[in-house]
Design a protein around this nucleic acid. Structure first.
Lengths: 182, 182
DNA sequence: ACCTGAACACCGTTCAAGT
DNA sequence: ACCTGAACACCGTTCAAGT
């Protein structure tokens, strides 16, 4: 008889994201996901290539999740206000999902999936700059600069510790970017 | 008899940095350092608090090493050229020591040592902006924005994969910062 | 086809024992 | 005081065995 599969790649990714959210990207392990899904650890090897495969799947899913949030934040807004909204969304994502945020930065291996996910993320920024009258090339450069700067700030903010409120510094960075890209 | 200690905190840190350089920050482990020092893994627990303590020591040492490179790059130069030189030094550090670069971003626990090391790093940037006529407050904000942006770019560059040459994008980010902070 | 469970190597950590 | 070595728990991975 053909047994109905209890597992699927979707369920594995869903569980892996859940583990990442609760235990951090470093807490992601074959055992933790297997335990969450109530299967033996070795059962996961049918759906992903070990712990590296797990990290890989989470890196792609996390980048997509961030992209969705950014896109949603900029929907119906243009120009400077859109960039402010996206920056706030970026920071909120890092605060609410530190594990996923870390995953967006740790793609262990080169892969089409991750590169495509990163391109999609950059396109959201680029579209805003296009709407502000920049050329296609300038928009892509501006998008990369903006993403890099925001990402770096948030990465260091979470590394240093989130005791202080760095809102003023974050706004300074935003304003610097907007002046520099005007 | 008092046996001459074969180990010391300095030797442990030195070895840990070596392991980080060759195997990456994720490759840093009690076993690897112990093997490098030709001692039993348990011997290290006299000098550091397990693998987390090891990562902690490396995070501090790596931040200091980066600071030294930045300071050296800006010695005898001022203004825009100093910032260009520091940016190049930052990027060179990330390229030559990817493991240490990763460590500058992964301080697991809050600690005076890491915070102090980060303050020293920011001061190097701040001094350049002070020399350009900025106020003390503006210099500190500019320093943080600059460091965040450079760090984020390099972190994503190494994450995405270093196949392409992103020199043009890096220079665009620099110019954006300089325009925005003028 | 899908999952379990045994098996193995390996790492982190603790602690009693040696010198 | 400093280090070794045994001991234990735990994770990753492979593979033969079940259904």
């Amino acid at each position: 008889m053909a047994p109905t599969p209890r597992l699927s790649i979707e369920r594995v990714v869903e569980s892996a994201i859940g583990v990442t959210d609760s235990d951090g990207f470093d807490g992601l392990s074959v055992s933790a996901v297997a335990s969450d899904l109530a299967v033996a650890p070795s059962a996961l090897y049918t759906y992903c290539d070990g712990v590296d495969g797990l990290r890989h799947l989470v890196a792609i899913a996390a980048t997509r999740n961030l992209t969705v949030d950014l896109q949603r934040a900029a929907t119906g807004i243009a120009g400077g206000p859109a960039l402010v909204a996206m920056s706030d969304a970026y920071r909120a994502f890092a605060a609410r999902h530190p594990g996923q945020f870390a995953a967006t930065q740790r793609p262990p291996k080169r892969d089409d999936g991750i590169e495509a996910a990163n391109r999609s993320l950059l396109e959201v920024f680029a579209l805003v700059y296009l709407g502000m009258g920049h050329s296609s090339e300038q928009s892509h450069l501006a998008a990369r600069s903006t993403r890099s700067a925001l990402h770096g700030f948030l990465a260091l903010e979470h590394a240093t510790g989130t005791t202080d409120d760095h809102d003023r510094e974050y706004r300074h960075l935003l304003e610097t970017l907007q002046r520099g890209l005007a």
